[in-house]
């Protein structure tokens, strides 16, 4: 049994295929909630969950405000909202201004998740074209959680992973198959 309580994944440009690979590899009985914070086109709302769901054994949902966080589900930050993890293991949504030109902001989701889960959090940063997520991953590290970035050599756009590696001493730099292996070993 794993000691972790949640996995949080941030990604932007070039991360969709990696995310698809990861969610399609996780078994229905994966023992942790998986929180996906991805930058998406603001007006593309529908279709994304459906597209991921076809490939995934786990249930994928866009959480509503105050929804309890449950094991075995994949939660996708809704477009045009920031997604926070609140005390009491629930989500909270916010329409505050964009952060790092983004809503959802990966940093904000990571900050709140690391505050809530402390060392029992796995944070993963994938391909992306800006630095949103770097401070968030740093916060995971500072709270004692485990930090992983996708290998920048493999990323379609490595800006986000390189910024994360600059911001903090990450625990692992993994290719996509390694990320999948790591997660499967948590079961």
């Amino acid at each position: 049994m794993t000691d972790y309580k949640a996995v949080i994944i941030g990604g932007s440009a070039g991360s969709f295929q990696v995310v698809t690979k990861i969610v399609s590899s996780l078994p229905a009985n994966f023992p942790l909630p998986v929180i996906l914070c991805l930058h998406r086109l603001k007006h593309v709302r529908s279709g994304f969950v459906e597209a991921l769901s076809i490939k995934a054994a786990m249930q994928i949902v866009e959480p509503t405000d105050k929804e309890p966080i449950k094991t075995g589900k994949i939660y996708l930050a809704p477009a045009n909202y920031h997604l926070y993890v609140e005390l009491g293991n629930r989500f909270a949504l916010s329409t505050e201004d964009v952060v790092n030109h983004s809503r959802p902001s990966i940093d904000l989701s990571f900050f709140s998740a690391s505050y809530n889960y402390k060392k029992k959090l796995v944070g993963i940063i994938l391909s992306g074209a800006n630095k949103d997520g770097a401070m968030g991953l740093k916060s995971v590290k500072e709270n004692g959680g485990l930090t992983i970035v996708q290998d920048p050599n493999e990323c379609q756009v490595p800006t986000m992973t390189l910024a994360s590696m600059n911001a903090t001493q990450v625990d692992h730099v993994f290719s996509t198959p390694k990320i999948v292996d790591f997660l499967l070993n948590l079961t």
């Binding site: 926070y84 993890v85 609140e86 005390l87 909270a92 505050e96 900050f111 709140s112 505050y115």
Partner: peptide, 9 residues
Amino acid sequence: YSDRSFKRR
């Protein structure tokens, strides 16, 4: 008010 976002603001 909700904790996390309030504190952030």
